[in-house]
């Protein structure tokens, strides 16, 4: 089942004659439970693509359909609510809330939505990601790898349709990177979670089910297509 789909997605910045075509007609389909890596050089448009998929930014033209819903025409407010219900983000810089402890960070998106927390599910995530011991810690007392695991847990807590990871290991050393990638891979299988991950590291990309290569705003190859 296709959970994520783009049709002729375009994102232009600036005005003539200095138009930058960050995305120039991208057609993409991601199946439910698939772990996709998007690779490309810096400036290739891979981050822009991720932002479009997560509803952080609006396309100049084309469509983004998540779980059968076209999000390209939504207002900012609708997009924000859409994000917290359907999209989990994992950033390179973790972006944890410093004043909240690990547990509170993880359940933040649920509470922002005004929902009660599914305790069992959250406990399960915390357990799976090896954060049980750290539940009451504040983020600045955790290592980079641990912080990224909290970020992943937070992204998973709302049971999102898709999890978008933007260079999740960019700030980590090799060992922590392995650790975080392992966690991502595991969630993909254990929770049947759809993941789209951006990276510029071929080696890391190899862990994904499929690699999409993007250059100058266009998809050039799709590897590992099953």
């Amino acid at each position: 089942m296709v959970i994520l789909k783009t049709e002729a997605l375009k994102k232009y910045y600036g005005k003539e004659p200095n138009v930058v075509k960050a995305l120039d007609g991208v057609d993409l389909e991601v199946q439910e439970g698939e772990f996709v890596a998007v690779v490309g050089t810096s400036g290739s448009g891979k981050s822009t693509l991720l932002h479009m998929l997560g509803g952080l930014d609006k396309p100049t033209d084309g469509k983004v359909i998540v779980g059968g819903k076209d999000i390209s025409g939504m207002t900012d407010e609708q997009l924000t609510i859409f994000r917290r219900r359907n999209v989990g983000f994992v950033f390179q810089s973790y972006n944890l809330v410093p004043i909240l402890n690990v547990y509170e960070n993880i359940v933040l998106p649920i509470e922002l939505d005004g929902n009660t927390v599914d305790q069992d599910y959250v406990e399960n995530i915390i357990e799976t990601l090896g954060l049980s011991e750290k539940k009451n810690h504040l983020p600045n007392n955790l290592s980079g790898g641990q912080q990224q695991r909290v970020a992943i847990a937070r992204a998973l807590a709302t049971k999102p349709s898709i999890l978008l990871a933007d260079e999740p290991t960019g700030n980590l050393d090799t060992k922590s990177s392995q650790d975080v990638l392992g966690v991502l891979k595991m969630t993909s299988t254990k929770f049947h979670q759809t993941i789209v991950m951006i990276t510029h590291n071929e080696q890391i990309a190899q862990l994904a089910d499929r690699i999409i290569r993007i250059e100058d705003g266009k998809i050039v190859t799709m590897e590992g297509w099953i």
Partner: peptide, 13 residues
Amino acid sequence: VSPKKMKRGKKGA
């Protein structure tokens, strides 16, 4: 942030 290490509570955010 204040140099607090732990913050108890499960009341959420």
